[in-house]
Amino acid sequence: MIEVEHLTKNYGPRSAVKDLSFQINQGEVVGFLGPNGAGKSTTMNILTCILPATEGKARVCGFDTFEQSMEIRKVIGYLPETPPLYQDMVVDKFLAFSAGLRHVPRKKISAAVDRVLQQCGLGDVRHRIIGRLSKGYQQRVGLAQAMIHDPKILILDEPTIGLDPIQIIEIRKLIQELGKAHTILLSSHILPEVTQICQRVIIINEGEIVAMDTLDGLNASMRHSRRLELKVRQPADGIQAKLEGLGRVISVQMRGQNLFVIESEPDAHLQDEVARMALDQQWGIEELKPMDMTLEDIFLKLTTEEKEVREVQA
């Protein structure tokens, strides 16, 4: 359904998304997980043909986002980060307008509006002005707008942000319900949210994919470990073997001539020992540092965020 190949997006000199590749199959509900500034919204804007990619390709339903964007727009429903709502319009008029924009035939518009009003629990506010609704209800109107033409694919950028806990649960339920008949890509900061709704998770950080798997797969592949990166000036034979010989090391990967990634047990602090060994052997330490933001760290960050939210609520 969605195929992304080597997607890169630069804003001026900075790249927001780097060489992203992933696939989403029909009927899947996929979570797009990552901390602030990871590039989630940027990727979604490219998929919905709002932004052109700097490099790489993205295809939706077999159509290229750049060359056949009109076809894609017909089958995609999009809830952007900030719901695109005309504040001065009445809810049902706005939804009717969105329906027309999405080429819903005139005669079917009012039925479509009634359907999404009901699905999103907006029946009571249908005659209210959008600007006077609470944030949660505005979010629902945004969601209703994305569903108005019954799209095959729904792209939802942080659909539960700014909602109260009860509404979060309701919206999650609604998305689960929709997931039965639609392909959904939704972004979130919050791991537990994704674990509830999605079958598969794509985790990105600073524009790059860190992990992509089913939830079970992710849990299994999460070895509880700590990683160190060592860069040396004098590449010598046997460095890898010597490092592996250190206590509590799980594995040592060689990346290129002089770069080693040392994976150790989580509570081992190996910096001192690695440094001592490097000095003794005169490898010449160029760099020795803990690898920042491993999958685990990101997981940690994402999980703690939800915890904080819970604590605040409690």
Binding site: T48, C49, I50, R73, P80, P84, L85, S98, R102
Partner: peptide, 14 residues
């Protein structure tokens, strides 16, 4: 300013 443009830009309208 109100970020409503993405509604039009993501619709099948040239």
């Amino acid at each position: 300013k109100n970020k409503t443009f993405s509604l039009l830009l993501s619709s099948p309208v040239h």
